[in-house]
């Protein structure tokens, strides 16, 4: 056990025991505070600075080629603690040239923002880097249905993110460079 040293408290002087000088000091402090610059942010007119690692509304993003990145692996649905995510998987037709080598994509992707707790697990678990909690922090609606973000809304919110994940392009290159079997 650590050694304990008992410190004797210094006896209070008379003025200290009346507390009046201390109260006066306190009054001085609060009074001087009145003239300091205010820290209030006038919210709707002034917006707060959103740091890069902010966890806002979860969104779906497209890659720079405009392809949807989500392949509906449903890992986010699985990991989501409040079960806010609901995905209907779907397959991508083979003949879409734009989406060569993409086989699977969500048919429907719903995030219930009344359930979402903004934990960011979905972003963390996503193997395709398709879901991001971006800088939107204010979402509101008049009905419960409105608060469920569907696929279209999620892509609208998400936009395009420059990514480091070029899986399908790599595959395309391999195909072009004679690795086709």
């Amino acid at each position: 056990m650590a050694k304990t040293i008992v410190l004797e408290r210094k006896p209070l002087s008379f003025s200290e025991r009346t507390y009046l000088p201390q109260i006066a000091t306190g009054l001085k402090t609060t009074f001087s505070n009145m003239f300091k610059p205010k820290v209030t942010l006038q919210y709707p007119e002034e917006k707060p600075h959103i740091p890069n690692n902010y966890r806002g509304v979860p969104t779906l993003v497209k890659d720079p080629n405009g392809r949807e990145k989500c392949v509906s692996c449903q890992l986010c649905e699985f990991v989501c603690p409040p079960k806010a995510i609901r995905i209907t998987p779907g397959s991508v037709p083979e003949d879409q040239e734009q989406r060569e080598h993409v086989e699977k994509a969500p048919q429907e992707f719903e995030i219930n923002m009344l359930r979402c707790i903004y934990c960011g697990y979905c972003q963390e678990v996503c193997p395709e880097e398709a879901i991001f909690l971006q800088d939107q922090y204010s979402s509101s609606g008049y009905s419960r249905e409105e608060m469920i973000n569907n696929k279209q809304k999620l892509y609208e919110l998400g936009g395009t993110l420059p990514d480091r994940h070029y899986k399908w392009d790599k595959k395309k290159q391999a195909e072009v460079h004679g690795n086709t079997h």
Partner: peptide, 10 residues
């Protein structure tokens, strides 16, 4: 108002 000012608010 006064409480706001003393607390750095408006």
């Amino acid at each position: 108002k006064v409480s706001a000012w003393m607390q750095g608010r408006v």
